[in-house]
Design a protein around this nucleic acid. Structure first.
Lengths: 201, 201
DNA sequence: TTAAAACGTTAACAAAAGATAAGGTTTTGA
DNA sequence: TCAAAACCTTATCTTTTGTTAACGTTTTAA
């Protein structure tokens, strides 16, 4: 099977982090693997080290914790985004949550081992450091906003913001997952929806 | 004034991110500046680009938003920690919150300009990429935990965790700042304290 | 195709948090 | 030193959220 199209797509998408030269890309792409996940299949589970980072070609992933037997969804990733239990990936320590495909999903994977091989390969080491840095910096910016939303906004405001800025999510994600993401229960989100609906009607 | 002791201290503390060789350190330290902040002086303000990253030699900093005229505290940094309006620093776009000294504070600063000069200096560029990467990765791990606490825990649980893991903070920081940090109002924190006190008494 | 599971809403009640204001203590700064 | 400001607690009332359970609809999987 020829994955050239997908690899070129990846190269384009990664430009928001870093631009690979042709020579660097030839090396880089040798360290990649493709993997398909069926719906509900796990990318990461608690108590195991997450040793891959993935780029989502197609599909969607859900991050969730289990607390007293109940799943609590913390995050989602979609097409053209990265997916990883980042802290576990970086520290090589056991992960604490689940990451699960919520649709049929295709990933391009880089293993921690391959990452380190590239870090030690002088032909590409510098670019890989840049790559790792830009990814981390990108997610820091996202996290800064997310934490601010918990500090500054009420659940209702977070919901309205999300509806405005990421409305497509509601078309793909069950609402009770979204509720957890906003830091509230599904019942509470249902009430917020009823409340805010009347304002616009 | 001789700052050798402080620079050596910085070099030691930065080892948790990256180790500079003697030659690299000689270059690196030339790009640093010392700056003193009086209590209540600002390190960063809204609508201006934050163009420095600081290392706290002594003192403490508070991050806060202003919303409808009210200050809402989002974070603190103390001795041997870094301080920056990171998103603004990275993206060169206007900052959205205040960062203020809450005690007499001494920082060692790196400007964005000097950071970029080092990134373009072959003698130290690689080490600087590593440095920037490790800092970002370190903060990602902190953020992952912080967001999880908002998703998984109740305000009361966040308070008890904080008391257990960062109890010293309560000795230096007014309680109503801590309340915001936990995502609640000062009145609510006061009630939580009263509630949880009885459990231990 | 069909039974089971998943999902969203609603209701009722309890628990917690927000808003506002008042009071007493401590800290600050002129 | 002394008045003003900052701070924490408490009280009251309102609003919101959590919890549990029920119901009807939709989706899933055998």
């Amino acid at each position: 099977m020829d994955n050239t199209i997908h690899l070129n797509h990846l190269r384009t998408e990664l430009k928001k982090f870093v631009s690979f030269s042709d020579a660097e890309w030839e090396i880089f792409k040798q360290y990649l693997e493709f993997r398909h996940y069926e719906k509900k299949e796990f990318f990461a589970v608690p108590d195991k080290v997450c040793d891959h980072m993935g780029f989502i070609l197609r599909g969607a992933m859900r991050y969730f914790h289990v607390r007293e037997g109940i799943e609590i969804t913390g995050y989602f990733s979609f097409e053209n985004e990265l997916v990883s239990a980042y802290k576990s990936f970086l520290t090589r320590r056991p992960n604490t949550n689940y990451i699960q495909a919520i649709e049929k999903t295709t990933l391009i994977l880089i293993s921690k081992k391959n990452f380190e091989l590239m870090e030690n390969n002088p032909a590409i080491a510098f670019k890989i450091e840049q790559f790792g840095r830009r990814i981390a910096e990108y997610y820091i910016c996202c996290y800064e906003d997310r934490v601010a939303s918990f500090i500054i906004q009420s659940p209702e405001e977070r919901y309205l913001d999300m509806q405005k800025n990421a409305g497509e999510i509601f078309l793909r994600i069950p609402q009770h997952y979204v509720a957890n993401f906003l830091g509230i229960t599904p019942v509470s989100l249902s009430r917020i929806r009823k409340r805010t609906l009347k304002v616009h009607a």
